[in-house]
């Protein structure tokens, strides 16, 4: 499936699971990913893991980005990863950001979150991460 997509825009779902209302960061990410030519769907606040998986499958996205600043990332992020595997969709790339203690990073990586972006991450780094992982061949074509 991924090979069919090499010429089409990267499709990403961004989501805020849990009750956290801090959406400054995820809205910035939404904007830069769109500016970079990606097709981005955002769930809005308080999406449940089930709703996130449904949206990801319905929208046929290649990556899911999650944000939480309330400390509930373990609960919600790991549940998204588990449900994704349950749906046989573990090929969807996972990344996340927010206030995530360093000690929790290995656990998230193990659950499939290849990109963990703490506060202070330049927005370009997230764009680059998605391009590197999802369109590696197009890299040489960029100016």
């Amino acid at each position: 499936m991924t090979s069919d997509r090499s010429q089409s825009p990267i499709r990403v779902l961004l989501a805020k699971p849990g009750l956290d209302g801090h959406d400054r960061g995820i809205r910035l990410v939404l904007r830069v990913l769109r500016d970079a030519g990606m097709e981005v769907i955002y769930t809005g606040l308080r999406a449940t893991p089930g709703e996130i998986i449904r949206a990801a499958l319905d929208e046929d996205v290649e990556a899911i980005g999650l944000s939480s600043l309330s400390g509930a990332h373990d609960q919600h992020f790991l549940e998204v990863s588990r449900l994704l595997a349950e749906q046989g969709a573990s090929d969807v790339l996972l990344f996340c950001g927010g206030i995530i203690p360093k000690a929790d990073v290995p656990r998230l990586k193990e659950a499939g979150f290849d990109g963990v972006f703490p506060p202070g991450t330049p927005l370009d780094a997230i764009v680059q991460f998605l391009k590197d992982r999802l369109r590696p061949s197009s890299e040489s074509e960029s100016p």
């Binding site: 009750l19 956290d20 309330s70 509930a72 373990d74 609960q75």
Partner: peptide, 20 residues
């Protein structure tokens, strides 16, 4: 957050958020 939005600590929607 559960208290701020109106969920008791034992509400399923409060899971992972209690006391955070």
């Amino acid at each position: 957050l559960p208290t701020q939005i109106g969920y008791d600590s034992d509400d399923p929607l409060a899971l992972g958020e209690v006391g955070r």
